[in-house]
């Protein structure tokens, strides 16, 4: 089932959580809404679910108006950030809940409910926990119960709010792979909210990067990493080396000097040059477009990082290429091999 978000705006008092957001999510995809906290990603997810309503705009499922339907009628599976498991029910009853509250013709006989719940529990590999209460489960197990419970109503849209946020790093990695496989098996469109770029890049077909209530970029994991559309995306995803600069007369100036770097068509004015740390080479100070003094060199396992103070006092962090051993206090030149130029907002 495809999802269309059309011009959706949502304000909480004076805070604009979503600012005229437009987004098309094709059916069957796993999409990650990625952004820092306060970027509006959870609000968007809750609006899709029907747990919140926009101030204006439209939400369509397969082209049909979804806002007219309440959350009960939307048939979306929602996995809550802290799981929201029913604390007084065991695992089995938690998963069975959505089937038990059905009315009239949709109501399943008890045997069918038991069969379906057992199927789901084995699908999420926790059938042996059926009699446990939520407070007797580990975080990862709760996560699986929450997912099984959401899947019990056979949703065509599965929404996950920071699904791995409360788990430790090892369990998180394990469940990530497992969720990806599960998505492949099921005929659902999945949308997950995360602030963890690694999670989004590894898991999703499409990554939607959000910042301050706006969508900054929509693309494949590869695209958002390699070709960030905005300075925000470049900063937020992966590591960035940021050089303040200026374009004037079609030339790029860093500090006092003009450089041979390409302004990439950006018009005159203050700009930032953004590059991945490993895309910046070290060179003799005189030959490089950017010069600075080495403040400190740190080693993390196989990689080394140097803090370099530029002429105007800004400090940047660059990856030290193998074979080069800069001395603290030495003057050094930086040559961005691959970089992007963005006007300063």
């Amino acid at each position: 089932m495809s999802i269309d978000i059309l011009n959706v705006t949502k304000r909480f008092k004076t805070f604009t959580a979503l600012d005229a957001v437009n987004l098309h999510i094709p059916g069957g995809q796993l999409v990650a809404l990625l952004g820092p906290s306060g970027s509006g990603k959870t609000t968007l997810l809750r609006i899709i679910a029907g747990l919140d309503w926009p101030d204006s705009g439209e939400v369509r499922f397969d082209g049909q108006d979804a806002l007219a339907r309440s959350v009960r009628e939307r048939n979306v599976g929602f996995v809550f950030q802290h799981y929201a498991l029913f604390r007084h029910m065991n695992v089995f009853e938690n998963v069975a809940f959505g089937l038990r509250v059905r009315k009239g013709a949709d109501k399943l006989p008890e045997a069918a409910i038991r069969e379906k719940v057992n199927q789901l529990l084995s699908l999420v590999q926790i059938d042996w926990l059926a009699d446990r209460r939520p407070n007797q489960l580990s975080g990862g197990q709760r996560q699986r119960v929450a997912l099984a419970r959401a899947l019990a109503i056979s949703p065509r849209i599965l929404l996950l709010d920071e699904p791995f946020g409360a788990l430790d790093a090892k369990v998180r990695k394990e469940l990530r792979r497992w969720l990806r496989n599960l998505h492949e098996e099921l005929p659902v469109t999945s949308v997950l909210v995360t602030h963890d770029q690694e999670e989004a890049l590894e898991l999703a077909d499409t990554v939607v990067v959000m910042g301050k209530g706006r969508i900054e970029q929509v693309g494949s994991p590869q695209e958002v990493y390699d070709a960030p559309a905005t300075a925000f995306v470049h900063d937020f995803i992966g590591e960035s080396l940021s050089l303040p600069a200026r374009v004037s007369g079609g030339r790029l100036h860093v500090g006092a000097g003009e450089t041979a770097l390409d302004p990439q068509g950006v018009e005159d004015g203050p700009v930032r040059i953004l590059a991945r740390p490993h895309d910046v080479d070290f060179a003799e100070p005189d030959a490089a477009p950017v010069r600075g003094r080495v403040l400190a060199v740190r080693t993390f396992g196989p990689t080394r990082r140097a803090d370099i103070v530029l002429g105007d006092g800004d400090i940047v962090e660059a990856a030290v290429p193998p074979g080069i051993h800069p001395a603290v206090g030495a003057q050094i030149g930086l040559v961005p091999r691959r970089y992007r130029v963005f006007p300063t907002a």
Binding site: R72, N75, F78, F86, F97
Partner: peptide
Amino acid sequence: EEEAAVSLGA
């Protein structure tokens, strides 16, 4: 928990 219940159709 109430939101979860409603989202499951209760």
